[in-house]
Write a protein that binds this DNA or RNA. Structure first.
Lengths: 195, 195, 195, 195
DNA sequence: AATGAATGAGCGTTCATTCAT
DNA sequence: CATGAATGAACGCTCATTCAT
């Protein structure tokens, strides 16, 4: 679905860089064109609108996330390992590209644009589905404790993970996301393991 | 600290209304003035800048949250009841004023403004402190299970709560936040109760 | 001509202070009212417009300059001493109230307002007349050299003096205006003294 | 240093026209855009700020002045002829573009903007240096009388010249600047010529 | 005599987007 | 495929001034 040309991927990549260096608010067509070494208008050869560029970032991340999820879900790892894998992978990606986290966590900015907020919503749903798949199987074969209903577990896990990322961003990336994330995963591990 | 005049509170209130009806992006001085039935300049009699109005919304919520937290913390309710009280109160408030949730969850928009992002940060810290107070006492007197360290518990609780609010907002307030929140609280209850 | 009430003089005085502390561009009704400890509107009890306040400053200086000139002109000092007296007095005044120099030298700002620019023009004419009176008598009784026509002498003297003040203002009052002024006066003395 | 594009020079030129017709206070982006037959925003393709446009006017004049000075200084004209040349040239330029004089004499308006006031300061310094060069050589080879120290001579000459321009501007250009300037130059000639 | 609220016109500036070349 | 110029709508903000109380 929706393949991007070489040049489009370049633009998306530079947009990510720009957000990383400054902030998502500094992602203007003018700034982006400057970074690409072209004029404003040139960008419109490749994207119909600024929204489409943002959408591009979201989709590139989505594709990666999807691949990650599918690979993990279809693997024969134990349920808990799957969950750990799912998130540690994301933490690594965010650490490498913090600006992607900026975009993925920009619901409040996208509020106005139904396309963008839909995409973010979809991302969240995907994540929930992947988790759901792991937990369900886990609860079935006794790897995951059944005390807490699946739906609630998902909320707890995603919520905790998101909160760490939020704090990381608000603190100006002042702590090691991977490390802290692993600590959280260890705790969740305890929670999920049947007594 | 920082009392607001009658008129200032009116303006803050109208700003909240405006955000509720449209979105935080539609909160412009022009729109706000229109809603108040005055001209743009009139607003500047009462607030030095648009940021100060946003700050006003944040502080009104902060004051409420602080009162709530203090009352709860100093009460002699059992730890778990305190936590429940803390959040169910917030859920009720957000349900009544969804736009306040919009503002409180607008870190990505405030990223550029150190004043505003500081305020949001502070709000989070306050929340953590209140939780910390309840959990610590609870763990000491055996009301709260000690299996999971306090810090992690806080993350789990706040993370889960925030995630529900985020989903509620992304879904266009399509479910009952109070109800869903109570479900989550019941689950957390299980988690916190010592075996 | 045009007497000022006690309160009006207070306002003028505060306006001069304000200009001294900040700059003439910071002389707004709002700032002035703040400095006076009243609200904006209150000022309009005493002055019909901002222009009238500026006019007030100009007239207070004008009155002082006029007194100075009359006293000097009608005295029986030698011509050159009169000229020296005329200017050293002004330098002393400017040193004490640099903001008055700011206003007196603000022709470019007053350009739009015929009242104000007229007033500045008048000030210049007065100065020329005073000088003229001294030089004429001096040339008649041989105290002042007749090589250079009166009109040109006036231009040279006033021009030089103004230029020192301009440089003083542009340099942020970094040198002693009185001292430097006296040096210039000594030089002009040489020029005026008949061979 | 700092070359201007064709379009930038057009804008500068229209700005000069606008100031000439109205006044420097009427030089607003809106007015300028109207005069150029474009919208406000279009101007910002070519200049980053209004200050930069003012700076442009100043620099165009500065470049001209510099060329004039260098050509004059390196020539083998007698010292007094150099001085005459220096100023008569400026008078001619101001007569052709009175608004340039408006800008060059707008120190009081530029007071708030360090860039602009610096530029004006620099202009003055350049003028002093050029004069200094001419006078020094002239005093060395006996063309200029040594009675008055160089520094004072410079003050007298620039001061007188500036004063004529000021009076010319305040009088609404009601006399012939070139003519009056030449008269002044003739007088200065007498002053400078050794007895 | 002063306050407090408001006006209205204006200002410099930004930004996504369009389009002829 | 890109440039260079421009648009148009919006934005936050300032300021002299007015006026009912």
């Amino acid at each position: 679905m929706s393949e991007y040309s070489e040049r489009q991927l370049q633009i998306i990549s530079k947009a990510i860089e720009l957000i990383a260096e400054k902030s998502i608010q500094e992602l203007t067509i003018k700034n982006l064109a400057q970074k690409l070494g072209v004029t404003d208008g040139a960008i419109y050869r490749h994207f119909a609108s600024k929204t489409d560029i943002l959408l591009g970032i979201l989709r590139v991340f989505q594709k990666r996330a999807k691949d990650n999820m599918e690979k993990t879900c279809t693997s024969d790892l134990p349920a808990i390992a799957k969950i750990e894998y799912l998130f540690s992978n994301t933490f690594r990606y965010f650490t490498e590209f913090p600006s992607v986290a900026s975009v993925v966590f920009s619901e409040s900015i996208f509020q106005n644009d139904s396309m963008l907020s839909q995409e973010v919503h979809q991302l969240l749903n995907m994540q929930e589905k992947a988790l759901s798949c792991a937990i369900q199987k886990g609860q079935e074969n006794g790897e995951v404790c059944k005390l807490i209903p699946e739906k609630e577990l998902i909320r707890i896990i995603i919520g905790s993970m998101r909160y760490i990322v939020t704090k990381w961003r608000l603190s100006n990336y002042s702590f090691d996301l991977i490390e802290e994330g692993n600590l959280m995963l260890a705790t969740l591990n305890k929670l999920l393991t049947p007594a």
